[in-house]
Design a protein around this nucleic acid. Structure first.
Lengths: 188, 188
DNA sequence: ACCTGAACACCGTTCAAGT
DNA sequence: ACCTGAACACCGTTCAAGT
């Protein structure tokens, strides 16, 4: 199926992805598309032909990451402590969403917009987390009155906050455990 | 001191603030400055003369809100239940940061950037919350290993997540109580 | 002292013209 | 089938020229 594309088109697609990875690493999720095309040595129209939207480009950049996160959920589903398994996975989601500045926002938008080119990947990730949450709730290790969407919104919210904060680099982890065990102190 | 300004300048300032309130209500914190100047019937240079940065404009738009939040903290400092007082105040912070789309982000950025025209207001708000937190921690009703900055980052993160979510309108409150009492279920 | 708007350097996005 | 880049409609920001 790779051979079904013209060699020059295939080449341009690769050049664009490499350029995008660089530019997004430097400037975050809302990096200039023009700049990406320039780095790839390609016309701006070529970028649009291969990736009709910014979200489609991000999807191509991130799909392996989402795959990995889904696979991790499958593994953790077999871990003995269901509550700990969920927390571990949420930590990896938070860490993963920190790979590019602005990524928590892109994921959050994609989840809310079914027409987004990034929606399928994000929805898949969400339902993988949903299985972990469900098990933890059935075990009684996590409160039963929260939905997957809420838990993910919470985690991405913390990742977002950590990303525009000057505090220590383990802020995400700190915020996550605070939210996991509660701000309120009930004699731990 | 109001009379120290030329009448036309004073007038333009008011026109700009009214226009800004409208435009920001419609398009959020990153509303077009050009659009604001247009609505005010004023040249773009006049906007920059009165408000050298977007943050300075937001400050003028929001200072009364920050004052109110600081005043609320003073009142709540006298409430009997220190933990409940903190939660109430954090709820009001979350609600207040939802008045304009993008406001959680503006506040978060302002807290991290001391040169921001919005920094003083936000830092004042933070230290007011800090008093409430301190009292709650001394009472033992809130865990002692969190800072004000962390608590505020957490709340703004949740407000941000709620703002770009399709869920019910009480999502902020739900996320806040989850974070307050913890996602983990320890037999409530 | 204050106001104006052209000018500059950028965007995202589309689309006619080319190979 | 694919590529190119001019064109369009926007930005934020500055600054010479006006009153």
């Amino acid at each position: 199926m790779t051979q079904a594309f013209r060699a020059d088109a295939r080449r341009n697609r690769d050049l664009l992805l490499t350029a995008a990875r660089e530019s997004v690493a430097e400037h975050g999720t809302d990096a200039s598309l023009r700049d990406i095309a320039r780095r790839a040595g390609v016309g701006i129209g070529t970028l649009y032909r291969h990736f009709p939207t910014r979200e489609a480009l991000l999807e191509a950049l991130l799909n392996s990451n989402f795959d990995a996160l889904r696979a991790r959920a499958d593994v953790l589903l077999a871990a003995p402590d269901s509550g700990e398994a969920l927390l571990t996975w949420l930590g990896e989601l938070a860490a993963g969403s920190a790979t590019y500045q602005g990524l928590p926002e892109s994921i959050m938008n994609a989840l809310a917009d079914e027409t987004s080119g990034l929606h399928a990947s994000c929805a898949g990730m969400r339902s993988a987390g949903g299985q972990l949450l469900k098990r933890a709730q059935q075990d009684g290790s996590v409160r039963s009155d929260v939905t997957v969407s809420e838990v993910i919104a919470l985690v991405l919210g913390l990742a977002w906050a950590a990303e525009r904060s000057v505090e220590s680099s383990d802020l995400i982890a700190r915020l996550l455990t605070t939210a996991m065990f509660g701000l309120a102190d009930r004699g731990r």
